[in-house]
Each structure stands twice: as C-alpha cells, then as structure tokens.
Amino acid sequence: MVSTYPGARRTRSAARTAEEGIKDYIRTHRLRPGDLLPSESELCEAIECSRSSLREAVRTLSSLDVVEVRHGHGTFVSGLSLEPLLRGLLLRITLNPDRSLEHLRNVIDTREALDLHSAEEMSSHFAGRDMSEHWEIIERVRTIAAAGQTAVPEYVAFHQRLHAGLSNPLLQEMAGAFLRIHIDCLRLLELAPPRDFPDTIRAHTDLLRGLQAGDADAVRAAVRDHYIPLRQLPE
C-alpha cells in the first residue's frame, strides 16, 4: 500500500520538483548526450533542492534514460533512447494475459504502418544502390529455414539495415523499438515465430527488388505481404 502520510507526499513532491529542475538545467545549459552534469552539491545549489531529493530524482531520471550515473565519474546526460517506452510497452502487453494477443496485434499493426509510411523515402534512398548485404541476409534466412530453424537474428539485421536508410532518426528508433517489442513479445508469450518462410522470403525478395527499382508502390505491396504471416497468431 502506498503511504498517504503527509511527510511521504512532501518527499515525493520535492523529488518531482528536483526531477523537473534537472531537466530544466539540461535544457537551459544546452547539454547533449554524454555531457557531464555538475557535482551533487553544485546541482543542489543550482536547482535549489536537498541532496536526498536530488538523489531520488537522479534515480528516477536514470530509470527513464535521461541521465546515466557512472560511479566514480559523475552523472551524465544519457542517450535519451526509447528504452523506457520499450520496457513499458512490454509490461503492458504481458501484464494482462487476456489481452496480450490483442496488444501484440497492435504492435504488428504499428510496425506495418511505420514501414508503409517509410516506403517512399526508402525507395528513393535505395534506388540503384548496391544491396548485396541485404541479399546475403535473405540467402542466410533461406538456408536456415531449409534446416527447419528460425532466423530471428537475421530478420532483425535485415530490418535494421532498411531502417538505416531513413533520414528521421526518431523514425529509425521507433521502427527499431517496435521490432524489438515484437520479437520480445513472442519470446515472453512463448509464441513461435511464423514458420511460413516461403511467403516471408518471397515478400522480402519483392521488397528488395522494389527498393532497388525505386518503386514505392511495389515496396508497399511487399510490406503488406510480409505482415500477413506475422498476423497468424493463436486465437
């Protein structure tokens, strides 16, 4: 049970104020990922908070990937990744078993929407380029499938190389995050990846051909074909 003792509420309020103070300090001083924050005493003075409130705020911001504590070196601005979003979504999906598959389908829909949205830019980016690495991955997937195994690392590598062609770094990160959520959900829910490899390989092959030809319509059609087997989840 969460304490409703007035002192506990004041402590939480002070820590929350310290959190906002640290974020404001990062903004106003234009700090970037990897930059060192002031010492504990200096930061307490700068944002006018107690050491205990500051330490609690730093713990919270560390869990949110806003700051990174390196013992013996100090507190740094973190990479500000989407890792907290990923962890939160995974918890949300797996917390309620009755709705886990529904939430997983939402993740798959989001992945498809991101890929469809990116089709135009990816087609322009890869048109006429050497995509031999992508073709090599497809061949490895084909070989692994012929042996009756799944090729999750190769699947991830393939999509990561495609996402690298996007100019929007947030879109790159979102696509990568939802890919990881999808893979981790299958593992946590103990669901086997789709084994309809011929269709999957065909869709990836069509996707690469569309990208090299700069044909966004062909890319979108291949994306839709790719997600059909991914939606084949148990009822």
Rank of each mutant, 00 (worst) to 15 (best):
R99K: 15
R105P: 01
A164G: 13
A145P: 01
A113E: 03
T94P: 01
A175I: 02
E133W: 04
R70S: 12
H117V: 14
A146G: 08
A113S: 08
V156W: 01
A113K: 04
G88N: 12
I137D: 03
S78T: 05
L85N: 04
S132V: 10
V69L: 13
M174V: 13
S167F: 10
G74E: 08
I137H: 00
P84N: 07
L89P: 08
N168P: 02
Y155S: 14
Y155R: 14
E133A: 14
I181C: 02
L114D: 02
E133D: 14
G74L: 07
M122K: 14
T150K: 00
A151Y: 04
S132G: 07
V66Q: 00
E112S: 01
R161V: 15
H163S: 12
A164Q: 14
I183Q: 01
L85I: 08
R180W: 10
Q172R: 10
R129A: 12
G165Q: 04
L166M: 04
R92I: 14
S167L: 11
T94R: 07
T75N: 09
T110M: 06
T110L: 13
H125Q: 11
S118D: 07
T110I: 11
L179R: 06
L82N: 05
R161L: 11
F126I: 07
E120L: 12
I183Y: 00
D65E: 08
P153K: 07
S123Q: 05
V66Y: 03
L89G: 13
G128N: 04
W135V: 05
I144N: 12
P153E: 00
L116M: 04
Q149A: 15
I137S: 11
F178L: 11
E173Y: 02
I93R: 07
I183A: 01
F178N: 13
D130S: 05
Q149P: 00
A177V: 11
R129P: 01
P169H: 05
T150P: 03
E83H: 01
I108P: 00
H71T: 15
I181P: 00
H73Y: 10
L91K: 15
P84L: 03
Q172A: 00
E121Y: 04
V141Q: 13
A127N: 02
L171D: 01
L171V: 06
P169R: 07
S81E: 00
V107K: 02
S124T: 15
P153T: 10
L101Q: 09
W135N: 06
H117F: 13
T94K: 06
